[in-house]
Amino acid sequence: MESRIKEIQEKYWAGETTIEEEKILKNYFSKNNSTDSEAGYFKHLKKASVLKPPVEFKHPGRKFLLPKWMMAAAIFVGIMGGAYLFQQSQKQNEFLVDDPQKAFEITRQALMSISSGMNKGTAYVDNLQKFEEATQLISK
């Protein structure tokens, strides 16, 4: 093997080697423990030929794709969300009133209901005020 390598080395410096022979030299010296400067040179060429980029390059034609299970989950959530919104809109349609008179009546009833609720609330506040006055009298 050694003599074969020597022979290829001579051919290399004479500029007569093929790519395959040059690869033989680089591979041989990259596995060899020799500290000989020529060995170091070929070792370096081998190392340089496997130098990796510091980053992973983005494929320009590949779009971002989710894993299949994520895509399925996203579709499921989409369908369920759509169905829910459709159901809600159907419910709202039930309250749609075309007749203005009827609409006025419904609004009036709703406002009355709010008003009665407000009155009840005010009554409670009155009671609280009385309680506060009593507390102040006692504390004096």
Binding site: T35, S37, G40, K43, K47, L51
Partner: peptide, 20 residues
């Protein structure tokens, strides 16, 4: 940065690199 580490081998290779 091609060669890292403190082994004799790496130092040797680094020297090669510089002159090359």
């Amino acid at each position: 940065t091609l060669d890292s580490g403190n082994t004799d081998d790496a130092i040797h290779a680094k020297d090669h690199l510089r002159w090359l």
